[in-house]
Structures are given as structure tokens and as C-alpha cells.
Amino acid sequence: MDDVRFSVDLVADVVQMWSQPFMVNAFRAGTIVAVLSALTGWLVVLRRQTFVAHTLSAVGFPGAAGATLLGAGALTGYFGFCLAAAVVIALLGGRGAGRHGHESALVGTVQGFLLACGFLFVALYKGFLNGTSALLFGSFLGITGGQVTVLAVLAVLVLALLAVAGRPLLFASTDAETARVAGVPVRALDLGFLLVLGATVAAVASITGALLVFALLVLPAATAHRITARPARGLALSVLFGLVAVWSALTATYYSPYPLGFWLTSIAFAGFVTAAGGRAGLDRRHRGGRLVTVFPRDGLPGSRRTAP
């Protein structure tokens, strides 16, 4: 990458990037993962399960490190451990969305232990110099065509599941008890969603590393939630933000000496801060009272706020 330099001609830049097979694979994998995580993430934010997502990603690290140590490949480890952890959480967790708060101390303790295990596995695998950094903070080098295929198959599967179960899942996520009485199988959906979340976290972690999963899983979705309360628009915006973050981060990484994890997280974070700031501003404007149309003495209709 010595002669690589960013120019004003964006088309030429992209052509140059995509002349490298590893960059093409990185863009393919990144695009698939961005779409997948944006959709799952929108539901994670709605269901207040970000802590669960974080737990799953912490489990993914020893999984990936252990699998690398055994020669099975990091992706296998991510999927195996994340899905197994999703089942365990579903069996331990009780009912409804966002109910893990009371167990947070226990889960946090287990998270710390798992990260330590992952570190041990990496240390045991001595030939794997960059391993820790790649597993924790992500890497876009060395994504194979086979991995892209695995991610694509997974994404199609998850999208099909979300399309079929979308409305009952939304119902169960906003109001579990009412949904249950309306005939929605809330418990089955809870478990199903945790499995989808486990698979998504594994897929995202293979690009962003275990510690920066939130950059793609939560940040684009949280940004979309700040901007719109309409489900269809929120999902679309979440996907858009995820794609923009991944594409611009890959480009920035290719043309700069800084790592992917930094760019991805910073770009997604900048988007979130902008949206959150805008939302806070709008809310402050509304807080004083409702906007009403008034007809003051000069006869020109205007608007003012009612008394708080």
C-alpha cells in the first residue's frame, strides 16, 4: 500500500481500492454485515438488549481466540460461542425484553473472565502476532471469499426470519404481555431473537473485532431511533447509516495509517452525536408547551408556545 494515495477523483480512488482482491472482499463482507447488524440492531435498541449484545460479543472473543488456537478459524469460534451463549442467556434469562438489569453484576463478572480466557488463548498461540488486536478491534485484511459466502448465507437467512416474524416480534418487543394475549408466542420469539442476535454479533465481530461490535450493531440503529419513531423509516435509516459507516471507514482505512476499528467507531459515533444533539434540541423546543397558532392583535397568524 506504499503508493496508495487518496485523490480528489473518487471514482479513480474506488477503482484503485477495488483492484485489490482483499479490498473487494472487505467491501462485500462489510456491506453484508452492515445491513444485517443495522436491522438486528434496530430491534436490539427497541428491546433494550444492548447489554446482552455486549455480553455476546465478550463471549465471542475467547471463542474466536480458542478456535484460532485449535486451527478452526476465528469465524467458527465466533459463531459457535455466540450462539451457545445466546441459548444459555435465553434459558437463564426469564421473560420479556430488557430484563437482564438485575443480573448485571454477575454478567459483568463473567464477561471479564471470558475476556481473560480469550487473552490466554491468544498468548498460547504464539505464532499469531497481530491476533489480539485483530480479534478485539477488528481487521479487514484476509477476509476470504469463503467467509463472504458464509456471511451472505447467514444474512439471507436472518433477513428471511425477520421478514416472516417481523410484526409479531415488534409487538412482543414493545409490549410483551399484550402481545401474548393477542396470540403472539412471546417466549419462542425471545429465544429466536437471541439466536439471531448471537449470529449477528458473530458476523459483526468478524469485521469489527469483539470490542467494537457496537460500532455497527448499536450506533447506526441508535442514530436512526433518535431521528425517527417510524419503524419502517427507522430500519431503512439504520441500514443507510451502517452502510455509510462501513464504506467510508474502509476507504479511510485504506488511504490512511489508522486502523479500521478507529475509523468505523468514530464515523458511527459522529453520526450518533449529531443525531442525538439534534433530537435534544428539538425536544427542548417542544418542552415549553405545545406549538399553537395564535392570532395576535396585528392580525397576522403566528405561533407561540403555551404555558408549560
Binding site: 421478514a163 410484526r167 393477542a182
Partner: peptide, 11 residues
């Protein structure tokens, strides 16, 4: 969701 939240598949 009260109207069709119990239905499966895309609307």
C-alpha cells in the same frame, strides 16, 4: 400492532 401485530409475514 393491535390490528395486525399477531400476523406473520410481510404486510
Amino acid at each position: 400492532l393491535g390490528v395486525d401485530g399477531h400476523r406473520w409475514g410481510l404486510p
